[in-house]
């Protein structure tokens, strides 16, 4: 990647199509500048409902309610939100044992030499929580997103996809 890294490897329309195709019904999110570029596509998708939360911790509990109510939610946030919402995901993934899936944007991952702690802590934190994940950091990794989510939905297991991002 170059210093002029793109903000996101995905454009909104391909994300919206992929998420709806694998079966998600709701996207519960608090976007960053890269994920935020998907807003129009997600909001206008006839197959997805976009739910906006004010702080990331809300997203996990809200997704838990959607899931128990019979829907298929996806939690979407930046790594900073993942860090903020640790107790909420602990409760939903480990106390309630719900197979909630998430898409985590890793800020500055695509910026060579970046020392941004927002991405440096992403994988250690996911590993510490014992959350299975896949990293999408190159264009050729992009098919992993739909493949992984489809498999996790089919088998009813929690997990995350980490999407590398450019600068904030």
């Amino acid at each position: 990647m170059t210093a002029n890294a793109p903000p996101s490897l995905f454009i909104g329309s391909e994300i919206a199509e992929s998420l709806a195709d694998v079966g998600f019904t709701h996207v519960v999110w608090l976007p960053d500048s890269a994920i935020g570029l998907w807003e129009e596509a997600l909001d206008s998708s006839p197959r997805l409902t976009l739910v906006r939360v004010c702080r990331e911790g809300e997203a996990w509990a809200l997704a838990a309610g959607l899931h128990i109510g019979g829907k298929k939610p996806l939690v979407v946030m930046q790594t900073t939100g993942l860090f903020e919402s640790g107790d909420a995901l602990r409760n939903v993934l480990f106390d309630m044992e719900l197979p909630i899936l998430s898409l985590i944007g890793a800020r500055s991952w695509l910026v060579p030499g970046s020392k941004d702690s927002a991405f440096r802590f992403a994988e250690p934190i996911l590993k510490a929580w014992g959350i299975d994940y896949r990293l999408i950091a190159r264009p050729e990794d992009k098919p992993l997103l739909a493949e992984y989510f489809a498999e996790r939905l089919k088998t009813g297991r929690a997990g995350a996809v980490v999407v590398a991002e450019g600068p904030p």
């Binding site: 709701h26 519960v28 409902t49 739910v51 939360v53 911790g57 809300e58 997203a59 996990w60 509990a61 809200l62 997704a63 838990a64 309610g65 959607l66 899931h67 128990i68 109510g69 019979g70 829907k71 939610p73 107790d87 909420a88 602990r90 409760n91 939903v92 106390d95």
Partner: peptide
């Protein structure tokens, strides 16, 4: 056990579903 502060968003998820 809950995550404190989670009851309202949890209930909102149920209501939306």
């Amino acid at each position: 056990p809950s995550a404190m502060g989670g009851a309202i968003p949890f209930a909102l998820g149920l209501a939306l579903a």
